[in-house]
Amino acid sequence: MTVANEARDRAAGSAADPIRVMVVDDSVVIRGLLGRWVDGDPDLSLVASHRNGKVALDDIERSNPDVVILDIEMPEMDGLTALPLMLRKKRDLVVLMASTLTRRNAEISLRALSLGAQDYIPKPESKSEVTTSVDFRREIIEKVKTLGARARGGQRPGRQIRAQAVGERVVPLHSVTPPAHARPTGFRASVKPAMPRPAVRPYPSVRPRVVVIGSSTGGPQALQQVMRDIGTAIRQVPVVVTQHMPPTFTAILAEHLGKAAMRPAKEAGDGDVLQPGHIYVAPGGRHLVLEKNHGQAVARLTDDAPVNFCKPAVDPLFDSAAKVFGSSVLAVVLTGMGHDGADGVKTIAAGGGAVIAQDEASSVVWGMPGAAAQTGQCNDILPLQEIGPKIAKILGGGVR
């Protein structure tokens, strides 16, 4: 057998292997429901179901899951306590936090991201809503399958690439890099051949008057690094962010971004006049678009239908920014699943604005930035750690 045939057979065998899923929740109803959904998908396999973090932790090595859906509030050992202990036992484990939409749980979920969780899944408020919610089921299955690809070496759609890692200390919420026990050092390289680097355009000569950013999975951590790295440069322009997040979460995200940038930050309100040096975050459940009113750029919130299955969505923000600011837009597409933002990138480029996409190696998921890059309309495709400094340089007039 040739080396090429062996590689092909190994890839086929791995692709045929279902992603192994563990469900950890103190509700027997939720455990049963999620278990049925997982086992009902041919790409997934339920390998364990547990009532609390302690039992799950004791079973990690035996069950060997690729993905754990981890509830936050449980007796004996809660999800936040169990998370770092699980990651110490299995470094390449993908953990999705599950919680209802309370402020406390939103804070805990964002904290869990800094401790190594890959994403969060907001639960509907009641068990009856959990049972009947099509969106909840779709989101769980989509995230498990996409993020589960990390443990399978990137051989499924939406593949994951190794994230950056730093020293041994446990890092705070505003840091993008997970602690050492959460480093994905066990991830295998993809057998796919490297794709050609997408074409990029020259930067426009116009200095930006607004920065608009779109992100999803992995976005909260990436956004905080970008805001921290931009530094004082954003005193010159408003920054408008659409992160795929539910209500409550977006208000807390705005607070964290403000702390990271040391600038005023808030959930955008309908009619807010955009102020230089201020950060505006699209509220969960509403689209954020920009309009011109009496010569001033203002935020508008709409209750239009989801775009790309998302609400808020990035495309409406990007499209409206191009209409209001024309060639003076600087758009950034960070890590995230799907292709939201790609159409908006085309609109911004057509209007003469600039676009930066995060590169594949530093993205948790190279869906959104990958789709943006593949339009051929980006001006740069950069590692996360270079995006903030590049924005600062552009705002300072240093890129022409």
Score class of each variant (00 low, 15 high):
K266Y: 11
I230S: 07
I279N: 00
T250R: 04
A233E: 12
Q224N: 12
E255A: 08
D272L: 01
D270W: 06
K259C: 14
V281E: 00
V273I: 13
V240Y: 02
P238I: 04
L253E: 03
A268R: 04
H278P: 03
H244M: 14
R228L: 13
P247L: 10
G231Q: 11
H278I: 04
A260E: 01
A282S: 07
L223E: 01
H278M: 11
H244Y: 12
G219C: 12
G231A: 02
T242G: 05
V240T: 11
R286F: 15
G271Y: 03
Q236H: 15
D272M: 01
G277P: 05
V226E: 01
P276E: 15
I252V: 13
D270E: 11
A268C: 10
A282L: 05
V239Q: 00
R286C: 13
G284M: 01
A254C: 08
L274K: 00
A222T: 09
M262K: 15
M227T: 05
F249P: 00
V241S: 10
G284R: 00
I230A: 13
Q225H: 15
L257M: 08
L253A: 06
G285N: 10
R286W: 14
A254Q: 03
V281G: 00
F249C: 02
G219F: 06
Q224C: 08
V241T: 12
V273T: 14
P283Q: 06
Q236P: 10
P246N: 10
R228Q: 15
P247I: 10
I279P: 00
P283S: 06
R228Y: 12
G284S: 08
